[in-house]
Design a protein around this nucleic acid. Structure first.
Lengths: 197, 197
DNA sequence: GTTGAATGCGAGCGATGGCTCGCGTCACGA
DNA sequence: TCGTGACGCGAGCCATCGCTCGCATTCAAC
């Protein structure tokens, strides 16, 4: 951010710009995401926009940060709520939370995940993964099962990636052959089968 | 393609353009992928380029088609080679083939998969998935295990997506905690555990 | 050799869009 | 009330880039 907004009206403007950025993205796609368009949608002049954002990418960054933070928060909250719970229940709840978070605004997901270069989401998805993985690793390391096969760190990596991508692709592709409940069942079976092998 | 090249020299030119397209992409990234740059890299004038390609996207399409077809062919070949084989061996071989194909040109993968909008790869990855999924579904439907739990169609979807994304992310991220062998082991455990639950 | 089609060239058009700059307006402390 | 700095404006600069068009060159059939 080029300059910190000090007065209330400028803080509001920054908010309006970020909101407009997301709106343009969702309603008109990434191609329409030009600084002039975002400024217009925010009811602000291009010049004003550049008083607080160094460049176009900075606006996109804020939009993406907020989106993925929202998703990660929902999943982390669901996970934190069930610290003591049994394995399958936790897996199902986590998958449910993730799918729910992604379903909240499918159009936003479609634009952010499919029209944007994947690299733009990389760090933010990595954060989401790390947050979940850390909690999973703790759970795995603490399980009574002394065999510790597979290695907790590796297992957490596998489980989180599989879960994330299954949820993501299910929401994006809505495959007719797989209902929401079936997805959750299969994720539980997949993770459960893996960890008890 | 706007016009079919008839003489040998024009066919060579089309080849040079496609090769230059991939080269520019790999060496300078998607941002540098302009028609003028590709034409220059191919030693061809922009005007010539447009005699055979309707627009910039068409060049990219050919590059992507070839890349993913190559990957899909390698995986499909590996799968076809082991029609009769036992489950775990087939899973391991398939994962190995996919990882190998993706590892062949990691920089290309990085650019094509991370700098390009995901949507550009969508159909081609869907093809790869479908080809593998169909073979997996056949195998699953034929297994003696009468329970048929999980549903073969759903199971194939789950297995193929999990496998694909694990392989993709492993090649792209090269996580220090997971060696290549560990990846293959875990994939086998994941799929095996899932199908015998 | 001649001729017509296929090929190839490259300067540059037209549009887009990120970003700036000079000027007017508003908020707020004194 | 007044002055100063924060704020906001928007016309437009400027670089980029996709793409075209008129012309030169090469090929192949006769």
């Amino acid at each position: 951010m080029r300059k910190a907004p000090q007065q209330a009206r400028s803080r509001e403007m920054v908010e309006r710009i970020v909101a407009a950025g997301r709106q343009v993205l969702v309603e008109h796609g990434y191609d329409a995401f030009s600084t002039n368009r975002v400024a217009a949608a925010a009811g602000v002049s291009p010049g004003s926009l550049y008083q607080y954002f160094p460049d176009k990418g900075a606006i996109l960054d804020v939009v993406l940060d907020r989106y993925w933070a929202e998703v990660a928060d929902q999943v982390a909250a669901s996970l934190a709520d069930r610290i003591g719970e049994t394995g399958p229940g936790m897996v199902r709840a986590t998958a449910d939370a993730l799918v729910g978070a992604l379903e909240a605004d499918p159009v936003a997901l479609q634009v952010l995940a499919e029209e944007l270069p994947l690299g733009r989401n990389r760090d933010r998805r990595a954060d989401l993964e790390r947050r979940v993985r850390d909690m999973v690793a703790i759970y795995l390391a603490a399980r009574p099962d002394a065999s510790q096969r597979p290695d907790p760190a590796v297992a957490a990596w596998v489980v989180v990636l599989a879960l994330e991508n299954l949820a993501l692709r299910w929401v994006l592709d809505q495959p007719a052959a797989v209902t929401r409940e079936a997805l959750l069942d299969e994720v539980v079976a997949l993770v459960g089968g893996y960890l008890t092998t």
